[in-house]
Every structure is written in structure tokens, then in C-alpha cells.
């Protein structure tokens, strides 16, 4: 069960398990539903519970960044492990989303 919190206009989602092409659609739809429902201006993606991520995760983060940007909102990513940081650094994700 994926968890989220909403404080003010900040929506925080806690990803867990494995984020690959197979699970990306479900995570993407879950986050989009929350973003639309909460009308949040700030999305924080907490990755502390993520055990595995491949480049599918880049698409998920950038897709949410694009969605938030269209609403005038921002995205931050926190608690990425060293491997996930390596993938984000390789792809330039941190040029778009804030590393918290």
C-alpha cells in the first residue's frame, strides 16, 4: 500500500518496492490521481522505501514534473539512495527537480 500526506499545498508521496517499466504505470496513475484530487502546488517524492529503480523511474519523475509545471507547481525528490542518485545525475533529473 503506497502512502501519501497532504500538508497545506504540499503533497508528499512515499514510493516503495521496485520501480521498473512493469510498475511505473501504476505508480504514475496513483500519483496523478493524488495530484489532481489534492490540487497541490508542491509535490515531494520520497524514495526512501524504493528497493530498486531503473531508468523507468526517470520517466515517472519527469512526467510528474511536466504535470506539476503545467499547473504552476514544483517537484522535489528526497531520500534517493546512491544508485538512484547515480541514475538521476546521469539523466540530469536534478536540473529540473529539486534534490531535497
Amino acid at each position: 500500500m503506497l502512502r501519501h500526506t497532504l500538508r497545506g499545498d504540499t503533497l508528499t508521496v512515499f514510493l516503495k518496492g521496485e520501480l521498473d517499466h512493469n510498475s511505473a504505470k501504476e505508480m504514475r496513475e496513483w500519483m496523478d490521481g493524488l495530484i489532481d484530487g489534492a490540487r497541490a502546488r508542491r509535490l515531494v517524492i520520497d524514495l526512501s522505501g524504493l528497493e530498486f529503480m531503473d531508468s523507468s523511474g526517470i520517466g515517472v519523475i519527469i512526467g510528474r514534473y511536466n504535470k506539476m509545471q503545467k499547473r504552476g507547481g514544483t517537484v522535489g525528490v528526497r531520500k534517493a539512495g546512491p544508485r538512484i542518485n547515480r541514475i538521476f545525475n546521469l539523466s540530469g533529473v536534478y536540473e529540473l527537480v529539486e534534490k531535497l
Binding site: 504514475r28 531503473d54 520517466g59 519527469i62 541514475i87
Partner: peptide
């Protein structure tokens, strides 16, 4: 090439080969 993808509608980042290489 990094960031090249034929499937942007699937939110593919085009980073697969770059990750393999790295």
C-alpha cells in the same frame, strides 16, 4: 544517444543504453 526515445507517450526517458553503458 542519451534521452533519445521513440516512445515518449510511455514516458520513456531514452536513458536505457546510457545506464547499461554506465
Amino acid at each position: 544517444e542519451p534521452m533519445f526515445t521513440t516512445r515518449p507517450e510511455l514516458e520513456r526517458s531514452g536513458m536505457g543504453f546510457a545506464v547499461m553503458e554506465n
